[in-house]
Amino acid sequence: MVLSQKLHEAFKGAVERVTGPRTVSAFKEKGVLSVSEFILAGDNLVSKCPTWSWESGEPSKRKSYLPPGKQYLITRNVPCLRRAASIEEEYEAAGGEVLLEDEDNDGWLATHGNPKETKSSDEENLPSMENLEISKKNKTIQSISSYFGAGEEEEDIPDMEEYEEPDNLIETDAATLQSNYLVAQEPDDDNILRTRTYDVSITYDQYFQTPRVWLTGYDESRMLLQPELVLEDVSQDHARKTVTIEDHPHLSGKHASVHPCRHSAVMKKIIDVLMSRGVEPEVDKYLFLFLKFQSLIEMKCGNVQQWLLMCLLSLL
């Protein structure tokens, strides 16, 4: 961990101990969430997208201001079929547009080009993060053999001689499917790609008073990925800047997380835009908006206009 990051964590921890969690709503004014609003928004997410569920996490890490059974939200086993790096190449090739990060440039909302024809999984009405893959329009799939081939040197890969089976365990059973069941299949593509999967969790960040997204990656055989490898799946503009690797507040170990320092500002902007268009944002929809904005960071989902349109749709 970088020193500045550590100092910041210490500072944050001290402030959190002194100030206590937010209880007054400032959702429309500041884009932040109080604890009860977080629970409300979480309940709504769980009921609309039941692949999400509340969990309690490690008892020792339990936050007293949240109910024991509603410490954080998680959805498991979300496939990510391609590395973000290859999505980005396609994106650039397609004449990609400005990212949300360029939001200081006030024109970012005003442009209203036609949404691309990309058949994106985000077009579905609920941002359930069922699939971290964004676009399938292009069939060039970047092989990840470089990662996979390097596995031999990795410590996690066992020494073969260590595993010689003394009793020569062989099961012959015709009813056991022997084909390559472990690989993902892309329905409209002959290419078969081994799949990384993610557990995506949302915690409440007391200091920033916003939700915070965490990514726990698994490799093709469902072995935990080093958090550094998760960065391969994150838009390169964001890797190591907005996405940091830190201790998870409710789980053990280090996980990749989208740093929440700008969340409330971005959410505030979204809320302002909605209100200027006559849509009254409801706090229980907060996490839907939030996930749209997160998926933009994580996977660089095409263009901003299309995304905003979807935000609007999900509120209507």
Partner: peptide, 18 residues
Amino acid sequence: VLLQFAPFQSAVDDGFWR
């Protein structure tokens, strides 16, 4: 045609080992 079943697969969270 023989009915063939796709085997179950395991995943262990590192919290389990801890």
